[in-house]
């Protein structure tokens, strides 16, 4: 008890895994099933949890978060679904193009930033596209505990709405599916107005959909702590920039297609992280000096903190300018 310890170094603990199955679901989404390399069961988890998958892409290590979508009680394997993003920085393309059955990879222990509120009298899920994945684990959990829920899931088309058919088959009238190409849309106002007191609303999907649902919920006077959302931001590409890491006494280059956090890690500096998507707050870093403009993209810092020039979330945010010195 002599020392004061900071939160665990970088990320959650890691597990060695073997790819057990690669199952293309449609043109865009592929499911990956993993078992543990040591033959043991995985830790159990709560619905809505994610894992960070470590991809060895040549000499580059990619770390992407994906929701765990299996039944939390079935711990012999973990499953994730990966949507191919042709415009992205390459993590999903690596999963789709290079990962095959029998490959060894590493997964983090589960982290949950999008948890069920177990006080809810009823859980209402609104999903858009690949945003369906966290709800699969939540639904499995609620089915075991006789929880009350309904799902409203909108996808581009019948072919691209992953798991829609399976969900309808298993859960019947609790599941409502909407296809964009048939001009079907969620009647959000009707949905929000007809719910019993004590209901909780959960939204996961594209940014536009989340802000639309949250906005309508606020306008309908839903209590803000009864409304939950999760959006994992993928780091975006941008102009390369230079950063001085003061504690480590290093100057690093952040490439156009890597995040600031990735560049810090590439330089051999251990930086804390969990979600790598601008949501958890773990990688919050103090800015010591700057001359230029921040491109803040996280959901963690307050607007005032963004404006202060004193904090940055290196997992998703970038910088344009002459000088940036970080306390790292």
């Amino acid at each position: 008890m002599n020392t004061t310890t900071k939160p665990s170094g970088s990320g959650a603990q890691k597990m060695d895994v073997i790819v057990e199955a690669v199952t293309p679901l449609n043109d865009l989404v592929t499911r990956f099933d993993f078992k543990r390399a040591n033959g043991e069961d995985f830790p159990t988890f709560s619905g809505g949890a994610h894992t960070v998958i470590e991809m060895q892409d040549g000499d580059r290590v990619r770390l992407n978060p994906y929701s765990l979508m299996s039944d939390p009680v079935q711990t012999a394997s973990y499953s994730i679904s990966v949507r191919r993003d042709d415009e992205g920085r390459g993590g999903s393309l690596f999963m789709h193009n290079h990962v095959k059955v029998g490959d060894r990879m590493r997964l983090s222990t589960p982290v949950n930033l999008f948890c069920l509120d177990l006080r809810a009298k009823k859980h209402i899920f609104v999903a858009g596209g690949i945003g369906i994945t966290p709800f699969l684990g939540m639904i499995a959990q609620l089915e075991r505990t006789q929880g009350r829920w309904e799902l409203h899931y909108s996808g581009r088309s019948r072919a691209l709405a992953s798991y829609a058919e399976q969900l309808t088959r298993q859960h019947g009238s609790k599941v409502h599916i909407y296809f964009d190409d048939q001009s079907q849309t969620i009647d959000i106002d009707g949905l929000l107005s007809g719910q019993p007191l004590g209901s909780h609303l959960y939204v996961c999907g594209p940014a536009g959909m989340i802000s639309w649902v949250l906005g309508r919920a606020a306008d309908s006077a839903w209590p803000s702590d009864s409304v939950h959302s999760e959006e994992f931001l993928a780091p975006q590409s941008g102009e390369p920039f230079q950063v001085r890491l003061c504690q480590s006494d290093k100057t690093i280059e952040v490439g156009a297609h890597e995040s600031l956090l990735e560049a810090i890690e590439r330089a051999g500096v251990a930086a804390p992280y969990l979600c790598r998507g601008g949501a958890c707050g773990q990688c919050e870093t103090t800015v010591l000096e700057y001359d230029g403009e921040f491109q803040h993209r996280d959901h963690w810092l307050e607007d005032a903190e963004h404006a202060s020039g004193k904090k940055i979330m290196p997992c998703v945010s970038r910088f344009v300018g002459k000088t940036l010195v970080l306390d790292r």
């Binding site: 008890m1 310890t5 939160p7 665990s8 959650a12 603990q13 830790p43 988890f45 222990t109 589960p110 982290v111 969990l274 958890c280 707050g281 773990q282």
Partner: peptide
């Protein structure tokens, strides 16, 4: 509080 909110599965913490 910030520390506690971030305690993850498999990495318990302690103090006196």
């Amino acid at each position: 509080l910030k520390f506690l909110l971030n305690i993850q599965q498999g990495t318990p913490a302690r103090r006196l």
